[in-house]
Amino acid sequence: MLALDGLKVHFDVSRRRGEKVVVKAVDGVTLRLRKGEAFGLVGESGSGKSTIGKAALHLVPITGGRLEIGGEEMTRLDRRAERRLRRTAQMIFQDPHSALNPRMTILRSVAEPLVLHTPLRGAALTARVAALLEIVGLSRQFLYRYPHELSGGQKQRVCIARAIALEPELLILDEPTSALDVSVQSQILEFLKKLQADLGLTYLFISHNLAVVRYLCRRVAVMYLGVIVEEGETEALFSNPRHPYTQALLKAVPYPQAVQPDRGSPLQGDIPSPVDLPPGCRFHKRCPAFIPGVCDRHEPPQVRDGDAMVRCHLFADAART
């Protein structure tokens, strides 16, 4: 459904003393999403996970690599391809409070994609919007309300209604529940799960919340500073993480239970700035399994094992022997 091949998104930020400063937000990412699957993309800030979502919808310019949606090359867009892209793929943003135009009624907001892409107008349009609201569990009395009159969970439901209005096949969800309270988060997650099953949607689910990804996604990729360090079936990856970063990430999450598992000392240091990437493996400065002379010199190779992939020198040796 969605295929990325060595996708790169670089931003020129500014010139420091005449020198160009380039942020390599996404630096060669390859991903394949099968139709109807929920794929999780996890990582911390600066990992480039949100940028991938935006690049897939051409909301940020693609610097290099290939983008394919629904089997169609979409790296460069002409008018026709753009119209098709806007119908097949939709995005749901992190903060529902700012994802709705405060000056538009819920009716107008949800109707917007329909106005742009279909000949529906007037009463038929209103009826369609009311039906969409019903799907997301909101009554028609919301039609003429403004966003500020709705709670966070209700706004996110409105955003979901708007995103599914054109019956897209691919939904990119960028941290859709992290601005919501726990009890509302579970309502939205349950709904998203049901929606995916009912409509056969493909999800690219971007999140920093590992528990949420584990709950919703069948496969998952872990990003660190613009590259994917590990990828695999969710359960396999969570129960047997291979990359030292994935291990540290999983260990860092506190469990909501009485007795905490022994997690050793936390990962030291900060996430480096994507402007100033470390040479070799991007994780080597914080890595507990750092091999001097190897990790700080050479980029680790991708080691594939069926559906799983890990990008680490530790496994390069294993693959060789």
Binding site: V182, F238, L250
Partner: peptide, 16 residues
């Protein structure tokens, strides 16, 4: 019951 547990797989979440 509403919080997904990062340490174990969950079939469903109950909501309030």
């Amino acid at each position: 019951a509403a919080v997904p547990h990062p340490g174990r797989p969950a079939a469903s979440l109950s909501s309030i």
